[in-house]
């Protein structure tokens, strides 16, 4: 009984949680290697057979998706075709520079500046556009938090310290400033930890 209590107490320490979690997650992922692979070949976004386009001497291989820009739709499949009726129309879009390179070199598809640009646009901004909004929202929130902390905790720190030093009567408690109270707070905690161990 006391052993279980000790186990729970050790779990109550926030420092240990990420380490324990990393070990558990690693174990689960290792177990995952034993799971039989089961790939649904009827994928939502189909890909051609490997090397097929290379053997057909298409210069944008393996990224040729068929179709002509604004004339005929290329190969893109949507989960709900009724929701995206003009799917595939900009599937094979290439910039003028890319068209020139593709016309001079047969290896455009393997070069670093080639990309299935039109296809990615179709997916990112048409069929799964809401996901793109959310992804950029996540990024924006990360930058909002980081810049807010940067402005208020790093850049204005000297100013806050000067204000706190000037105002003796101020009872605003701010242990992130370099004052004795900070260390009192830490010591109190470390005492508690020692008692537990």
């Amino acid at each position: 009984m006391s052993r279980i209590g000790r186990l729970w107490n050790s779990l109550a320490n926030p420092d240990r949680i990420p380490k324990l979690f990393a070990i558990v997650l690693g174990a689960v992922i290792l177990i995952g290697f034993l799971i039989p692979l089961d790939l649904n070949v009827d994928q939502l976004y189909p890909r051609p057979v490997p090397q097929e386009q290379v053997e057909e001497n298409i210069s944008t291989a393996p990224y040729a998706r068929g179709g002509e820009v604004l004339e005929s739709p290329g190969i893109t499949r949507a989960q709900y075709p009724e929701n995206s009726k003009s799917l595939g129309w900009i599937n094979s879009y290439m910039s003028p520079l890319a068209i020139w390179v593709a016309s001079t070199s047969p290896y455009f598809g393997t070069s670093i500046y080639s990309s299935p640009g039109g296809l990615i646009d179709e997916i990112l901004y048409y069929t799964r556009g809401f996901d793109t909004i959310l992804e950029s929202t996540i990024l924006m929130m990360a930058f909002v938090i980081a810049s807010w902390l940067g402005v208020n905790f790093t850049m204005n720190r000297k100013k806050r310290e000067a204000e706190a030093a000037a105002d003796k009567s101020k009872d605003y408690y701010d242990p992130t400033l370099n004052k004795n109270k900070t260390y009192y707070y830490n010591n109190q905690n470390s005492n508690i930890k020692e008692e537990q161990d």
């Binding site: 996540i138 992130t176 830490n186």
Partner: peptide, 18 residues
């Protein structure tokens, strides 16, 4: 993922060390 990162942000500005 958005909830996770915003949760961290809500407490990231507090002034208590622990």
């Amino acid at each position: 993922a958005l909830i996770g990162i915003v949760n961290v942000g809500i407490v990231s500005a507090v002034k208590q060390v622990d």
